[in-house]
Design a protein around this nucleic acid. Structure first.
Lengths: 135, 135
DNA sequence: AAGAATAGGTGGTAATACCATCTAAGGTAG
DNA sequence: CTACCTTAGATGGTATTACCACCTATTCTT
């Protein structure tokens, strides 16, 4: 199954465009892209540091510092894990809970100009193709 | 023209996946994502610092440092601009010229597992949709 | 119970990116 | 043509991000 070079190229270009939009949305709240990702993850999960690190593809120590700064900004909470006294659960603080949906909405708004260049049917098709791509 | 939330979501997910692949490809050569982008740009252009900065969405001073490090690694060259004695043209060094195509090929290889989940016809369709998206 | 493994944090380092500021060179108005 | 303003790039200072090596406290394994 050969790869279409044009599709590859567009995929990369699109990804950079999307990342630029995400970075900007994050920067509007003085957040880095990684912090944005953390908040997004914490909307649905309450991971331990190691799980977060695995998910983000970062070193545990990097995540430790990341969470440090997020705690200092009152966006997330570090809670002791019940089952394992070494472990820590990271969760959204009340302020984080308020911020996260705002961010999601703003990102949606920021990306809509992009996707709205496609008709609803095309958007649906794109969603389906990307779903298959992500497997 | 309403945005399909699923398409949006997939687009973001896909972008993160693609960026992870690119980062890894860059890291295999001890390059950052930004340095990778610079090399890719320099394959086809010989920009001034300010042009590069505009294209990357970075501050001029950030690019100055970036190019510093790339020069130190013998990947790019700083050449005086003929028309403007203040300006500098950035170009690939011989070593950079050798590295850039390798990187492109490796990135292609690294992304192929992703796109090859789609049939050739689907890849073509995806390419077309993304082209329209990028306008 | 002793030793290995795991969770997280610390300290040190390098790269990235910002801003404010500097110098040199170009452009413009009187 | 000189005096001013702008532009191109570099520099210095700071914060963040991310790494690695190592440390401590627990937990697991034997």
């Amino acid at each position: 199954m050969d790869a279409d070079p044009e599709a590859l190229d567009r995929l990369v270009q699109t990804s950079f465009t999307v990342m630029a939009v995400l970075s900007q949305a994050a920067a509007a709240h003085d957040l880095s892209l990684t912090q944005l990702r953390v908040l997004a993850i914490l909307r649905d999960h309450e991971p331990k540091i190691a799980e977060l690190a695995a998910y983000l593809g970062l070193d545990r120590s990097s995540v430790s510092g990341l969470i440090d700064r997020a705690v200092k900004r009152d966006l997330v909470l570090r809670t002791a894990s019940e089952d394992d006294a070494r472990a820590v659960r990271v969760s959204l603080s009340p302020a984080g809970h308020r911020l996260a949906p705002t961010l999601t909405a703003e990102i949606g708004d920021a990306l809509t100009p992009l996707t709205s260049k496609l008709s609803p049917a095309e958007q649906k098709k794109l969603g389906a193709l990307l779903t298959k791509l992500l497997d």
